[in-house]
Design a protein around this nucleic acid. Structure first.
Lengths: 335, 335
DNA sequence: CTGAAAGCGCTAACAT
DNA sequence: ATGTTAGCGCTTTCAG
């Protein structure tokens, strides 16, 4: 049977308070008893119960992580970074794949609340973000990761989506592309990336065409169908900016389907710099997010908020970076 | 402030025992009081504390999941399935990326133990599996997922690695390949896959060459260098069986590096049928594991073991399936 | 059908 | 420097 603090206290001939103190390194304990208790502890293989201590101490050392789908490489990579940062602070992470379904998210949220997690990271999408309001009201530490919902008063850690979109299009423009399509995922990030892209076009005096902007979901299939449709039009873009790597892969597949060579017939640029972008052929040009920095900041925010519940909500914006692959090339001046 | 069972009891004019009973649907409560209590509960937004109930009830409704690295697509996909199955039983999952480092794994294991998880799924690798012994001795529900360590008396859920290797090589052989290389990851699964492959060669009266079998770790880079070395020899295989998709991607990259066309110059077959195999060019032929079935079985085992601590340890072996891609082709009879 | 009371294992004053 | 004690929020006999 598992031994408790009482067993240790008895065996060591001290009180449970003393044991508690040596376990937590609190209070003043003589070197001698400390060592003695310590030795009894491992003799009995004593493991303090995190549950009991959570019930008293008010800390579970656990964070909840809501994401769309852990099987999606972007989220998996983010989860890994977040886990590492959490571990550094002695926290563990409960993962929750919501498939972006509001109801599932809400269920998970309340589950996590019942489990008294010390904070939640929300990296999934909501159809109706106002549903979050009641949770935020409880002032549980929450960080929105990689989405910025301006209407919500909550800590937010994102990449600068607008600038990312801008850089992507800017790069294409510098490479001589005037006919540029965009395949975006629905949602705030996608919109910001589009707007950034549009601005880049405007700054270069390039017209963007509404029919060359497609809003879809975020699977490979979505990118595929979106691109297929866009490229099926009488006049087709010479380059496509896909708002994330999954979509970009779909676009790539569509190009192949249509017999278009990438990058000679069609340049493609993605977003996120996930593993995917590194293994497709040709290696994707993409915009990378500094995920580890973002993860670090996220965990720090959670920790700080737990200490200072009344701290002002803060929005941190990280800088995206262009990663040059081989899915883009300068356009040969034919047209 | 969060309301407790006392608040509800007071507000409803009943005892906490009664509240507890309606929350847990236990005991006999009149329709009338039940409804009344229920209404008070949501009026007060009462959320039973999972922590407190765990301290008494002895269940946390949480499983621990140890895996090498959640950022690795195979594990991410497995994690997703496991999460779904766990959720169906009202359990959540704490993820732990160990990078296959024994010390980290051990730390996580004892952390999970302190958190009193109701079971652990081990899907990572140990250098020294005997380190697990002490944990198994506590008879905490444990399932080894996708590894079979015969020396350990523990529930095990795996794919038939031997047969998977056999099928892979058999397929190559049927396609006329006589010169077959293997790039394997160190560890039991890899070994079984190799052995199955070797048997398939033997059954077809094909010699396997020791210099065409490489044991590496399991990253893309490992597959790349392993293949580079193998293909750099004076006589090269016409086909390579990579023991997992990551390695296969590395092999693919090595082939490209060497200017070899896949599949015309070199056939490649992978293992796992992860997302990777679907997006590389050409689509990888691979051996798939029935991950959802395995995940289902894993969770059921954990659940059952919790009920019946003295149940015999069981080893479940699932059947692999060949997925035909375009990275393999029949050899043109030149040699 | 409902309630009183004894813990679960630990922490944190407050005493000694 | 160490011990006593009162909870934390809930489950579960056992009485009523």
């Amino acid at each position: 049977m598992k031994s408790t603090i009482y067993d240790v206290a008895n065996a060591a001939g001290v009180s449970i308070a003393t044991v508690s103190k040596v376990v937590n390194r609190t209070g003043n304990i003589s070197q001698k008893t400390r060592e003695h208790v310590l030795s009894v502890m491992d003799e009995l293989q004593y493991q303090p119960s995190a549950v009991a201590s959570a019930l008293t101490g008010k800390k579970t050392s656990t964070f909840g992580l809501l994401l769309s789908n852990i099987a999606n490489p972007f989220f998996a990579e983010a989860a890994r970074s977040l886990e590492d940062e959490a571990r550094a602070a002695d926290y563990s992470i409960v993962m929750c794949s919501t498939d972006n379904e509001d109801e599932r998210s809400l269920n998970y949220l309340s589950l996590l609340q019942r489990k008294q997690v010390d904070g939640m990271i929300i990296a999934c999408h909501f159809t109706d973000w106002s549903l979050l309001q009641p949770f935020l009201a409880t002032n549980i530490p929450v960080v929105l990761f990689s989405k910025d919902i301006s209407s919500l008063d909550v800590h937010t850690v994102t990449v600068d989506d607008y600038k990312g979109g801008y850089k992507a299009i800017e790069y294409l423009v510098h490479n001589g592309h005037h006919h540029i399509g965009i395949v975006a995922e629905a949602g705030p990030s996608g919109e910001h990336r589009i707007r950034g892209g549009q601005q880049a076009m405007k700054d270069a005096d390039i017209q963007y065409r509404p029919e060359w902007i497609t809003n879809v979901h975020s699977s490979i299939r979505d990118g595929y169908t979106g691109a297929l449709q866009m490229l099926g039009q009488s006049e087709r873009p010479s380059a496509i900016f896909a708002c994330n790597d999954m979509l970009a892969v779909g676009v790539l597949q569509a190009a192949e389907e249509l017999g278009l060579q990438v990058p000679s017939d069609l340049s493609i640029i993605g977003f996120d710099d996930t593993l995917l972008s590194q293994i497709v052929q040709p290696r994707l040009t993409t915009i990378s997010q500094p995920i580890s920095d973002m993860a670090h900041h996220t965990i720090q925010l959670l920790l700080r908020h737990a200490d200072t519940p009344d701290m002002a909500k803060q929005k941190a914006i990280f800088q995206p970076k262009l990663i040059k692959g081989r899915s883009t090339q300068a356009i040969t001046p034919t047209s």
